[in-house]
């Protein structure tokens, strides 16, 4: 079952967060609450709680305002999305023909400026 959090519950879950910050984070699209026609107020999910915790940590430590934070979070999302895509592609290549595996491995090593491992 998917967990749901009201605004109050989110504030209780993330001690570093206060209501004013949450309002600013929503306005800057650092988090996007879920609208549900069957409920009077928007709700948050576990992913949002984890995201708000990260936003608080980064905001506090790097002294980022919410707009800068939205940019950073957007880049983090891109990195994770690309990593997931790359992982999907690589696992297909990994299961594919040997020649293709070698070719992809060679390209990746070259791009990273690392010497290729010896042929086994």
């Amino acid at each position: 079952m998917m967990m749901e959090y009201t605004e109050e519950q989110v504030l209780a879950e993330v001690p570093q967060l206060d209501r004013a910050m949450l309002v600013r984070f929503v306005a800057a699209e650092v988090v996007i609450p879920v609208q549900a026609p069957t409920r009077a107020t928007p709700i948050f999910r576990e992913i949002d709680v984890a995201r708000l915790r990260l936003a608080c940590e980064l905001g506090d430590c790097l002294e980022l305002q919410e707009d800068a934070l939205a940019v950073v979070m957007g880049l983090i999302d891109q990195v994770h999305a690309l990593r997931a895509d790359l992982h999907a592609v690589l696992s297909l290549v990994d299961a594919g023909p040997d020649a293709l595996r070698r070719e992809v491995q060679s390209i990746l090593y070259q791009r990273h400026g690392v010497a290729e491992p010896d042929e086994q």
Binding site: I32, E46, I47, V49, A50, R51, R53, L54, M73, G74, I76, D77, Q78, H80, A81, R83, A84, H87
Partner: peptide
């Protein structure tokens, strides 16, 4: 026990994955 954001970040249904 903390749930880090990255546990959700790479998921296919992550609504924040964006449309870059």
């Amino acid at each position: 026990e903390q749930h880090f954001y990255r546990q959700y970040a790479g998921a296919q249904d992550n609504p924040y994955r964006g449309t870059q």
